[in-house]
Design a protein around this nucleic acid. Sequence first.
DNA 1: AGCCAGTCTCGGA
DNA 2: TCCGAGACTGGCT
Length: 165
Amino acid sequence: MNCSLPISTSEGRFVAHYSSQGLVQLDFPGDHRPAPARESNDEIPAQVRSWHDLTTTSLKTSLAGRPPKELPPLDLSAGTIFQRQVWHALLQIAAGKTRSYADIASRVGKPGAARAVGGACGANPIPVLVPCHRVLAANHRLGGFSGGLDWKRRLLALEGVELSG
DNA sequence: AGCCAGTCTCGGA
DNA sequence: TCCGAGACTGGCT
């Protein structure tokens, strides 16, 4: 089962993808990634619609710089064990706070694997809700961002994070 | 085997 | 104090 539904926000139109397990992927506006073939559009399962409500609310709340109160179930089964550990660790970062890649690495029990954490962040299918943008390099520099550094800056600004001091 | 969204160290402004 | 190059890192494809 595969459903893709749009979300219009102040930052543009995101696209959410769902499996039978929950939210699988969230696309940035302008990103036309390989959208999974969608089901017959006129028949969206009630469960997916309720998930989508949560996703929409969470996304808009996040974009307003506030912590979402309830996330939809996330289907992270596509990732490796390590990646899922990293993503879970990202979810623990409070809004408006930041961690370094090394912090996350030790949080998942692998200090020194900072570089691998970067890789896992890049593979994160659900940006914004899984706050990969809150991870900075050790010297509080920006580091990278697969969705574009511009997005990372903007997302951090929305949360009131000050960069490099 | 080769890629990185990192981090540390050291040398030169 | 502030970069830039180089060496080393760990997990992914």
